[in-house]
Nucleic acid binder design. Structure first.
Length: 472
DNA sequence: TCTGGGGTCCTTAGCCCT
DNA sequence: TCTGAGGGCTAAGGACCC
């Protein structure tokens, strides 16, 4: 899919069509997840700090990601791919390999091309979004083809033409060549795929190591016999948070690690797994990252066990100077065991038997959100409008019943519904006000109205489907 | 105001065992 | 009994991808 998150936002918010849209973290340490093609013209791209994007494109619309909606759209597209073939290998929410031969829907270039065009049309009809199709005899070449086909195109690499096609391309075109390898090769005078071939396998192995060197050499020749794998088992589960401001207080750091451990276990259990190795990740004030891990005697999905292991690992880490990120992960995954099921049945009770560490709750700080009511920033490429900034992650914070109704926060881009005006989305908020644009997928660009942040007639709501469903 | 979050895979090194 | 090679496991870090 082309500029997937941004395209979904444009389809969902008619006033943003044709405008620069940037989806990503809006906090002081946020980065861009996806920029619309309009925003890319200003030099904005994925992985760029949002602060830098705002400098390059001050009038863009800056929105938090709405993964729930993206997942819904993705499910629709993936279902269409599975109609073509049983062998579909999703790479992410917006990308997948499909073995068309295994599906019997393509046996030569013409039939493959026809299938690809039909798919693009079907995706547009079902979602209103544009996708690109790369057709080739291997995964690596199909990937290269789809990148070349973007946006909204289709490219087929005819068998026998691979090497000539690849030779003039920059080495970074090949999957697996990132900034580090690219720079390494550049220093050796290798900048194109053709030069990679000339260098020869031995030289690449010497430079990059066995697996990487040999693999890259084969790719440069256009050789790739990896199969399309439909079902992939997860190998690890992890959660991490970057804090708006570096953490120094050891007690707070311990509390955050406990909280992350709980979230990690919730995800672990949600996926039906237990795991044996607990990993703690710490990114320090200077961006240096270290990991510490501990392998247990057997797999667990017990939050107390993971919390304790994470706490032990933290004890071995020097955090003086400050910590900007903490993460907790579990690897060495296994399926559920009988003990796990037994443990689960106990969970209905008051609480885990062992309350060893008194740090308990999250301390009411509300996580990575921090406090940054930096309102009013960007416009929807128009004179009005603003995309307020909150560092809050997409998932709404747990309601936190113990808290006295805190001031409601409205993240830019999130869905709302007003008693009088109906569905809309938050364009910005700050100084006690929230600005909402009332429009929905398929409507004309809507009008903007401003309310008090605690207006009782305004409620958060679920996203509306992109393509109208007459049955509701 | 530089630099997210959730993953995978590879490499290196140390240790233990055969 | 000592030694070396090699495999498996664990830990840590790095590169890469979307």
């Amino acid at each position: 899919m082309d500029a997937f998150y941004a395209s979904v936002e444009q389809a969902s918010k008619p006033s943003l069509r044709g405008k620069a849209v940037i989806v990503g973290g809006l906090g002081p340490r946020g980065v861009v997840a996806t920029a619309s093609y309009e925003a890319r013209r200003f030099g904005v791209h994925s992985a760029m700090p949002t602060a830098q994007a705002r400098r390059l494109c001050p009038n863009g619309a800056y929105l938090i990601p709405r993964f729930t909606l993206y997942r819904q759209v993705s499910d629709v597209v993936m279902a269409m791919l599975r109609e073509l073939s049983p062998l579909v290998e999703p790479l992410s929410l917006d990308e997948a390999f499909v073995d068309l031969e295994a599906g019997g829907v393509a046996f030569d270039s013409d039939s493959a091309r026809a299938t690809g065009e039909r798919l693009r049309a079907d995706i547009r009809a079902a979602t209103g979004l544009s996708g690109s199709v790369g057709l080739a005899g291997s995964k690596m070449l199909a990937k290269v083809a789809s990148e070349e086909a973007k946006p909204a195109g289709l490219l087929l690499i005819e068998p026998g033409t691979e090497r000539e096609l690849l030779a003039p391309m920059p080495v970074r075109t090949l999957p697996g060549v990132g900034p580090a390898t690219g720079e390494h090769l550049r220093r050796a005078g290798i900048t194109t795929v053709g030069e990679l071939v000339e260098a020869g396998e031995d030289e690449l192995v010497r430079m990059l190591g066995r697996a990487h060197g040999a693999g890259l050499y084969r790719m440069a020749l256009g050789l790739d016999d990896r199969a399309v794998v439909a079902e992939r088992d997860a190998k690890s589960v992890s959660v991490e948070d970057t804090f708006d401001v570096d953490l120094h207080d050891r007690v707070r750091i311990r509390g955050e690690v406990q909280r992350l451990a709980d979230r990690c276990v919730a995800r672990l259990r949600g996926s039906g797994h237990s795991g044996r190795t607990i990993v703690l990740k710490v990114r320090r004030y200077d961006f240096s990252t270290l990991t510490r891990s501990e392998t247990l005697r057997g797999p667990t999905d017990d939050p107390a066990v993971v919390r304790e292991a994470a706490a032990r690992l933290l004890e071995a880490v020097d955090t003086t100077g400050g910590v900007r990120l903490l993460g907790v992960g579990v690897t060495g995954l296994a399926d559920y065991t009988q003990e796990d099921l037994f443990a689960q049945s106990l969970a209905a009770g008051p609480e885990a038997p062992d309350a060893a560490d008194g740090t308990g709750g999250a301390g009411g700080t509300g996580g990575a959100g921090g406090a940054d009511p930096t309102g009013a920033a960007a416009g929807g490429a128009g004179p009005e409008a603003a995309a307020g900034a909150t560092g809050a992650p997409e998932a709404p914070e747990p309601p936190g019943e113990s808290q006295e109704a805190p001031e409601r926060r409205w993240a830019a881009g999130s869905d709302v519904r007003h008693v009088l005006y109906g569905p809309g989305w938050v364009q910005g908020s700050g100084v006690g006000r929230v600005t909402v644009r009332f429009e929905q997928p398929g409507s004309e660009p809507g009008r903007v109205r401003t309310f008090r942040v605690d207006d009782p007639d305004l409620e958060p709501s679920d996203p509306l489907p992109l393509v109208g469903d007459p049955t509701g």
